[in-house]
């Protein structure tokens, strides 16, 4: 118990990695177009290692450019959201904290809607770009509000609520007054999250953000543990509370804003995966954060598979699937881990 058991840790890490690869393999194999497993491997070989198997261009495209990039982004997105949720729950000492608590999803939706319906930014700004700018704008407003009210954790949460409401109202105003029925439907789909448009360039954006964010968070695990008894207790343990807070708020915000701008606002993952992971690893962040990353990634990949296959000829919004299947699963975990009041 004293000495870290490197063998056990290595085994757990390996197992997690294998599960993640299996989930990605599943995501690549399962889909509307049924493709033989052998063809899947050939297509992957062609795409990853520049091999030269004969695979039809359509199958190659579906496997490599469509399903694999989608699965990788789903993994990065799920991991980053779960990680952000765990960090915010620790910093704000609130089990209901989640990545969107600081107004990021509301700001992103306003930004996306501004581009989609108002044509904001002209051709220079994509929906993703608009969502990212909106998210950052909301975050800045919430940060100013929070700092102006003293910066205590409850004030930060209230500032987030105020910011979210403001941007949600702005989104609703734009949609109800200016959008056609078809645009409104498009907005609703965007708001519930969508991996449909994901391609390799999104992977190249999401990968460095998720991994850099993870590195920053791992560097702060001991400081996060020290927040268990509040900010004063952490400061008395030698944690530079204002610096740690700012670094981690900004890190989670950039991760969340990036993911939201790529795939829209996918709920549930950032709130519930950290709790589920905590039942497995305990509260120490050195274990909890890697667990969140992996479990969030696997959960999101599986949710995406369901969203593509559950209703034939149709794609369910990913946010619907995460909540529809995640909520009962979480209820089960809660029930199993209940403790006497």
């Amino acid at each position: 118990m004293v000495r870290p058991n490197w063998l056990a840790r290595g085994a757990v890490a390996l197992l997690a990695f294998v599960l993640l690869i299996l989930a990605i393999a599943l995501a690549v194999t399962i889909g509307e177009m049924s493709i033989p497993l052998a063809t899947v491997f050939k297509a992957l070989g062609n795409g990853l290692f520049d091999l030269d198997y004969p695979v039809s261009a359509i199958q190659q495209g579906v496997i490599f450019d469509y399903r694999l990039s989608r699965a990788v982004v789903a993994a990065l997105c799920g991991g980053a959201l779960a990680l952000s949720g765990a960090i915010l729950q620790a910093l704000l000492r609130n089990p209901l904290a989640e990545p969107y608590i600081l107004g990021i999803s509301a700001g992103a939706s306003t930004g996306a809607v501004a581009v989609m319906i108002l044509g904001f930014g002209g051709a220079a700004l994509s929906i993703s770009g608009g969502a990212f700018l909106g998210a950052i704008a909301a975050l800045v407003i919430v940060a100013v509000l929070a700092a102006g009210s003293g910066g205590a954790t409850d004030r930060v949460i209230l500032a987030g609520v105020a910011g979210s409401q403001l941007f949600n109202a702005a989104t609703a105003t734009i949609v109800t007054t200016l959008a056609s029925a078809e645009q409104a439907r498009g907005v609703m789909f965007w708001l519930l999250g969508n991996f449909g448009g994901v391609r390799w360039p999104d992977v190249w954006l999401a990968t460095p953000v998720a991994f850099a964010g993870f590195a920053v968070c791992i560097f702060h695990t001991k400081a996060l543990d020290a927040f268990a008894f509040g900010a004063d207790a952490a400061a008395a343990l030698g944690v530079a509370v204002p610096r740690v807070r700012i670094v981690l708020f900004v890190t989670t915000a950039v991760m969340t804003a990036t993911m939201v701008s790529i795939v829209g606002t996918i709920g549930f993952v950032g709130l519930v995966i950290p709790h589920a992971a905590r039942f497995l690893t305990g509260p120490a962040h050195a274990r909890l954060l890697p667990a969140c990353l992996i479990i969030g990634a696997i959960f999101m990949i599986l949710a995406d598979i369901l969203s593509r296959t559950l209703v034939p000829q149709q794609i369910l919004p990913i946010g619907v699937v995460t909540a529809l299947f995640g909520a009962p699963a979480f209820a089960f975990i809660l029930y199993r881990a209940r403790r006497p009041a």
Binding site: R93, P95, A223, F229, G230, A236, L237, G282
Partner: peptide, 24 residues
Amino acid sequence: FVEQQATTEIQLSVCDVVRLGRTP
């Protein structure tokens, strides 16, 4: 520093709490 009545909602064990003292 020992605060008055500092508590937590996190499920920590006694040794988890004491281990926090090693942070600095």
